[in-house]
Write a protein that binds this DNA or RNA. Sequence first.
DNA 1: TTGACGTATAACCGCAGGGATATATGTTCG
DNA 2: CGAACATATATCCCTGCGGTTATACGTCAA
Lengths: 101, 101
Amino acid sequence: MLFRTLADPTRRAIFERLCRQGEQTVGALTSQSGVSQPAVSKHLGVLKQAGLVRDRHEGRQTHYSAQLGALAPLMDWTREMAGFWEARFDDLEDLLKRMDQ
Amino acid sequence: MLFRTLADPTRRAIFERLCRQGEQTVGALTSQSGVSQPAVSKHLGVLKQAGLVRDRHEGRQTHYSAQLGALAPLMDWTREMAGFWEARFDDLEDLLKRMDQ
DNA sequence: TTGACGTATAACCGCAGGGATATATGTTCG
DNA sequence: CGAACATATATCCCTGCGGTTATACGTCAA
């Protein structure tokens, strides 16, 4: 779900902005997103459902902030893939060593 | 481009399989993918264009293998986002410390 | 050379999803 | 209360893309 959520450039840009600059209102995010406010709200909904952002209501404004913990599965997945690769590389090294003898 | 490439479950499964089990022919990948051979070829094309796989022709077979180096930008991006978060967290800590005095 | 095989490409289809506009919901202020 | 504001939801449109089938291309074997 994380990959799919972060695949869209507009949505990823919103998330990056929240990471870089911290909590932001919908209006602030809309003003620099290049799309309409409803589109931004929709993206925020997707990000929220993926656990990547939190929302905090304050009067008539809604403040969104990034939830970095949600990125852990992404780092885990990447590490896992790299791990498989290294394991196979080690196997290859072993094989070559044995062939060398 | 990486997020978009890895967003599709079928395509990601193909890539994971190449990571876990090393080089595979198109036929081998097709047999366990649940989709048709042309679909697999198309996915492999997308993965190749993203730099995530290499192809090696051997007779009438094509062997594909994962290129883990292409995952580096993904790890960098994740680390960068986490870094922003920590930086802001440090700022918050500093702020709280100052307010505490 | 001819036919079977492995893969890539072509052409087409259906639908998910990102976009816009319009409007509903909720909030502050006069 | 009523109007302006901030955001969310509804509805619709349209493109992109993942899937299929059909077929082309290259390779091996007889």
